[in-house]
């Protein structure tokens, strides 16, 4: 059982994968021409979204002095070097495929997001989260919690060492399985650039069945959630390398003309 509102003793969900597939396909066709990056918040194939999306359109803020155009900052004291290695947080080594995940955090103008906080969390190699409410009958790993954080460097780069998470079942519909993924939380220069998302692994056979990934209805946008495997970065006899660059919304056109933007272009 994956969601609080579904008691353990409840009947299995009535809808089958093919019911969900048909809904996903209809919404994909309806959205095809729009080419949006972000999912619609109203995406019924992901059942939990039905009561958790606003009906009214958001009110646009054009105030150039809005507080949201600046944002939180973090520093060297907020993280330790070990926070970026999820395989060394316990006495022993976790089970699973040891991997690195690295990339750059950029804004839409291609400028690096420097010195900002990147946070990740994930299931273990068996597809189980170290969370009390995760009751999937897969083993917990005493040597893996699945939490990491780091600050981006001067080029916007981040890197984590971890293990590849497993896929897991959930209760959206009968026989629903999430593709393996790592949750990412990112900050930009402005609060408006905040992003929480999920990184997937290339070639996962579950992509087409998953309403959360498919909520991104544009195919090219979905592809931007999938990491690349980069053999040249793999460490011989130690870890396999995945790379994933992240592009945050913004900046606004006016912010783009700030002096540091000039500097970056030189």
């Amino acid at each position: 059982m994956r969601t609080q509102e579904v008691p353990v003793s409840s009947e299995p969900p009535a809808e089958t994968q093919s019911d969900i597939d048909a809904e996903i396909e209809a919404l994909r066709k309806a959205a095809a021409a729009r080419g949006l990056s972000h999912p619609d918040r109203d995406y019924p194939p992901y059942r939990s979204s039905i009561l958790r999306h606003p009906r009214a359109a958001p009110v646009e803020i054009t105030d150039p002095e809005a507080a949201e155009l600046s944002g939180p900052v973090f520093g060297a004291g907020d993280v330790t070097a070990l926070d970026a290695d999820l395989t060394r947080r316990h006495r022993g080594e976790p089970l699973g495929e040891r991997i690195t995940v690295s990339g750059r955090v950029l804004d839409r103008a291609g400028r690096p997001i420097r010195g900002q906080l990147v946070e990740i969390w994930q299931a273990n190699a068996s597809g189980r989260y170290a969370h009390q409410r995760d009751q999937h009958p897969a083993p917990l790993d005493p040597n893996f919690t699945g939490v990491g954080r780091c600050l981006t460097d001067d080029h916007g780069r981040y890197q984590f060492t971890t293990i590849k998470p497993g896929p897991y079942p959930w209760r959206n519909h009968l026989n629903a399985w999430r593709p393996a993924h790592i949750h990412f939380s990112l900050f930009g220069a402005a609060f408006t650039q905040r992003l929480i998302t999920q990184m997937y692994f290339p070639g996962d056979p579950l992509f087409g069945y998953d309403p959360i990934l498919q909520s991104v209805t544009d195919e090219a946008a979905r592809a931007r959630l999938v990491a690349g495997y980069e053999h040249g970065r793999s460490v011989p006899e130690y870890s396999m390398a995945y790379t994933w660059d992240i592009v945050l919304d913004g900046p606004r056109a006016t912010l783009f003309e700030r002096p540091e933007a000039e500097e970056e272009r030189r």
């Binding site: 999912p39 969390w121 170290a130 969370h131 939380s185 929480i196 090219a220 592009v247």
Partner: peptide, 21 residues
Amino acid sequence: MTMLPATPSQTIGPFYGYALP
């Protein structure tokens, strides 16, 4: 100036509790 396309958002899910707070 060509703008890069943004990385899509995905839900925070139910299990962030041991990671973010």
